[in-house]
Each structure stands twice: as structure tokens, then as C-alpha cells.
Design a protein around this nucleic acid. Sequence first.
DNA 1: AATGAATGAGCCTTCATTCAT
DNA 2: GATGAATGAAGGCTCATTCAT
Lengths: 172, 172, 172, 172
Amino acid sequence: MMEQGIAAVTLSKIAKSADVSSGTVYTYFSDKDDILREAYLDRKAKLAEAINAVDLSGNPKLALEILMDAIYHYGKNHLDDMLIIREFNQSALLKQLNISLDESYSEFESLNQLTNRGIEEGVFVAGAYPVIMSYAYTPILEYLIAVRNNVLDPKKVPFDKVKEISLRAITK
Amino acid sequence: MMEQGIAAVTLSKIAKSADVSSGTVYTYFSDKDDILREAYLDRKAKLAEAINAVDLSGNPKLALEILMDAIYHYGKNHLDDMLIIREFNQSALLKQLNISLDESYSEFESLNQLTNRGIEEGVFVAGAYPVIMSYAYTPILEYLIAVRNNVLDPKKVPFDKVKEISLRAITK
Amino acid sequence: MMEQGIAAVTLSKIAKSADVSSGTVYTYFSDKDDILREAYLDRKAKLAEAINAVDLSGNPKLALEILMDAIYHYGKNHLDDMLIIREFNQSALLKQLNISLDESYSEFESLNQLTNRGIEEGVFVAGAYPVIMSYAYTPILEYLIAVRNNVLDPKKVPFDKVKEISLRAITK
Amino acid sequence: MMEQGIAAVTLSKIAKSADVSSGTVYTYFSDKDDILREAYLDRKAKLAEAINAVDLSGNPKLALEILMDAIYHYGKNHLDDMLIIREFNQSALLKQLNISLDESYSEFESLNQLTNRGIEEGVFVAGAYPVIMSYAYTPILEYLIAVRNNVLDPKKVPFDKVKEISLRAITK
DNA sequence: AATGAATGAGCCTTCATTCAT
DNA sequence: GATGAATGAAGGCTCATTCAT
């Protein structure tokens, strides 16, 4: 998936990389779509798990910082997963795989709740609620990609800088 | 492309939707890849044109606002184009179509320049330069999508709100 | 035809190399097969003309020598034509082009007649009549090819050597 | 191949005549070119085997006779193979199939060696060496074709006649 | 008479899926 | 359960041929 994109994924490649015959795959999955769906949901579940492990009960501002840290640390080890999740979310695959959009963004449930609470408590900027996530999640991804591609030196620009910008955006 | 994703694009579908035989397509394009490339570059050129038409010479903060407005207004009429551009940029297609990454992000050239100038003049936050775009462009896209999907009422949350948040993020 | 074989000949290539549109070709030829047929018959007619220009009325042995000379000299200037004629003769194209085998070997009519006369006069070896041509024609072709490919130095092995061998074969 | 020429060979025809689906062919061959290559090399290997089985160590003149006999007997049972080999050798296919010319004429290796030896021992006519094969191999093919087409009665003109002529040509 | 865009049959090839072993 | 040969629909592409201009 990472090297050539999701579209290049082939059942026989999957079987080969799993050291299994192509027929065997059908013992565990009903479909090629089923495999993709599971692959996607599995990655998303792991990301969600990492995100949801964080305790977000305290001060919203602080909680957001902790959450962004969690996402950042997860991405340092699983950037590919995050990129694949994004590719799925933005392609027409979810529709084809019969995955509802609700389900598709479920990993950000806690982020949503935190956002809601922050708005209620008057700490976060009100209004553009569904857009807020794009200030808190996407920049992390872009930061990680930039670092990986060597267009950003993490020593000169630590991740804290990103958090700072995002917080300034979201906080009242 | 919009309905079923770029991967589902088929030459015979193209031909049929153009009310033309499959062979005719090859009078105008050398390849299926050629069609995709042209479709992508054409959309990007139009987006770039809309973006570059804006005069960004004045105060960086004001210029950024004007630029975001331009992008927003373009997106209101051509959201599909922008989504397709995003899908291309994030899939493995660019590599396959022999489109350099430089070329691929060229539509944001003026945004980059503005960002640079803003940083130099001490108006924009320094440091996370490659990430800044994700604060100025992605939120617009997310706002437009949210409005289209009826999860955001533009009367209650006008686009100015998004600009305000982005500006707060980027401005010192 | 020479560079990539008869199979690679395409109507549009023909049209292009004739500086004419593909449609125009159909004003002069009814078919692609018609073009091939004409191309073949034309080359064969020219070869036949060169062969038949020779006076074969005298002593059969001497006449054969003169004939081989004529073929050799023709081949020095038109080896490609001879190779194409051979490719046609040995492929299934003649059948497809509705060219009878009789017609196909007509260029060797005078050679046949000479052979017959030589046998009657008791100068040529009797018997394997249809095979005799392969002793008088094929070696010339092979000689010309070998010289062209630089595997035979014509200064060391003049064409007379080939004639000598062929004559020894055919003459009693 | 025999009925309509190599150019008319189609993957679906191959599959149909093998009572197999088109996809199955690709389990055993990587390519259509691969099929043609294998078909050609296989036929050539068998012809070479038949030729190389002959003991050519004795008197060159006698050895040549034995060799021609071997080729003749092989051709009686496999004339089609020999014709296909010839069609390959003279078409542009070898280049396309990435078969070197060296490899392509390897079946005549023993004939070449015999020729060399015969020349060294002063038994065969020197000089036109690359052409000699056309006196020893081509006539056999032409004889077999003539017999098959009923333009030559093998009872009236036995193969020995051909050998006799060829030997007279090649022998000093 | 010339043009060349348009046509569509037919080619090679890939790949998800099935099923006898 | 596992295997992998077999299947065949579907895709991209070529090219001889037609026909409005």
C-alpha cells in the first residue's frame, strides 16, 4: 500500500507477502474488499486506541496538548498507518467498502468530545467545530511528513512549535 | 472521478461519458495516464490561476485574508476539483504519472511566497514554515466539505470564522 | 518492411511515409491487402524484368552463368527487394493475399525454361528439376547477405566462385 | 502457425486449440513472445538433436551424405517444424524475441564443423564457406516441399539424386 | 480527390475468485 | 484447512476502414 498506493494492492501480492496461497486467503476473508476493510479498520482501531488511552478529563487546553502529543508519538512509529488511513478517508474506497462516514472518523471521537467540552467551557473558540480537527490533527501529520522528507529539521523546529500554533488557533 | 474515485476511472467509461468511441480518445490523448495527467494538471492550473490572480503585495496579514477568500470562493464553485487535486496529491499516482512533486504543489507558490514574506516581516510565526499551509489551506477545504455535507450551517458559522482562526494561528 | 518485418507494416505508416493521409490510400488501393499484393507483385515484376532481359538462347551452361550474373547484379542494388520477396514467398501471406503459387514464382520462368532446355540437351543433370532452382538462386542470395553482413569478403571470395559451384552442381 | 503463418497466431487461438482459457496460458508462459520463443527454440532443439545424433567423424564426403540423410529423414516427419524454423529465421521475429542470431543458427553447428573439416582436409571446395550450407540444407527442404506438393514424384526422383547434386557442388 | 477524426472489432494482459485435490 | 491451476470478465490499446467536410 505504501509504496504503490492502495490501488496497486493485489490479492496474490497479499498472499505472497503472507506466505500463504491465494486460495487460503478466502478462508479468512470473504472478499478482497473484506481484506481492505479489515486492514483499514484495524489500523484505525489501533490509532483510536492510542488516542483514547489518553486521559482528557482535565483542563481542555492541557488535555488538547496531551492529545496532540499522543498523536505525534503514535505517528512517529506508525506514520505509514496514518497516511493509509488518510488515503482511505479521502478516496472513494469507504463508500465502496460499505463503511459509513460515522464509523470512518470514529478514531477522533475523543478529540470531538474534548472539542465539545472545550467549547462548552468557553476555552476553545466556538463555531467552526467540525473544522477544528483540521487544526489539531492535520498539522501533526504534515509535520511528521516534513520531518521524514527532510524538509524540516526537528531540532530547529520541535514539535512543541506545532502544538503552540494549534493551541493559539483553537484557544480563545 | 468524484463518484467512484480516480481508481475506478476506466477508458470505456470516459469514452462513454464523452459520447465517443474508445478509439477516439486516443486521438487526443496518448495514454490513459495522459488523460489523468491532463485532468490533474488542468484542474491545478485553474486553481493556481484563481489563486495567483490575487494581489498579495500589501500587508501580509491582510494579503493572507484575501488569499483565503480567493481560495474559498474558488472552492464554492469547484470543490470537486479541489478534492480531486487532493486525491491525486496523496495517492501514488503522481509518481506513476511522472509528475514531480515540485510541479504538483506549484499552485501554492504564491501562498508560499506570502508565507515567506510574512515570516521575514515578523508578522507570521516563524519556524514551522512547511506546516503553515496546513493551517491556511486544509481548513478551507474542510469547511467547504462540512457545509456541503450539511454538518455545518454557513449562516451560523460564516467563513470569516475560519479565516479568523487561521489568522490567529499563523500571526504572531 | 525491411526494418521490422512485413507484419509491422501499418496503413498509417504507409500513408505517413507517402506524405498522404490514410484516407487517400483508399483512393488508390481497395485494401491493405491490396497494397501488400501490389508491393509484392511490383517488386517481383522488377526482378522478373531484370532476369528476363537476359538473352538465354545460347549454350545452356553459358546462359546459366549469364543469368546468375544478372541476378547477382540485380541483388547488389536491390537486395532488400529480394529479401522481401522471399519473406512473402515463405510466409502465409500469399495465400491470404490470394496470390497463386504459380504466379508467385513466375519471376523464375526464364530460369525454368533454361533449366528445361539444359536437361533436354543433356547438359544439365536431369531429375530433380524443381529443386535445381535452389542451387542456382538461393546461393546468390546467401552470398549477397553474407557480403552485406561482412562475414564474407568479396575480394577474397568473388562471386565467380559461387557460379562455379552452382554450375558444377547442375552441370552433368 | 502452419495454416495461417506466425503473424496470425493469436493468444485466444492458442488457448482455444489447447482447450484452455486465455488466462491459463499465462500460468505457463509470461508473454505471447515467450510462447513464440519457446515454440521456436523447442522445434530448433529437436532438429538440432536429430542432426547432432549423427556421427560425423569419418570421411567428410561420407559424413556429409549421412548428415543429409539425417536431415531428410527428420524432414519427412517434421517438415512443418522445419518450415516454421525457416519462417522465424527469416522474419523480424528473432530480433523482437531477443534471440541472438548465433543462437538462432546453432542447430547447424555440426554442419558448420563438418564443412570446416572438409575444407581443411581439402575434400570440400574452399572459399564460399558461409554459402555452402545453402547447397546442403536448402535443397533438402525444397525437395521435401516439392514432394509434398506433388510436383515431384519421389519414386522417379529419389532423394539420392539431391545428395548426388549437392555433393558434386561441394566436393572438389 | 484529399483529409483525418471517428469507429469498433479484436488483441494482449491482469486479477479476483473458484474448486478439485 | 491449504493449495494453486484454471477461469473469464474486464481493462488498455491498436489499427484497418469509413465518411462528412
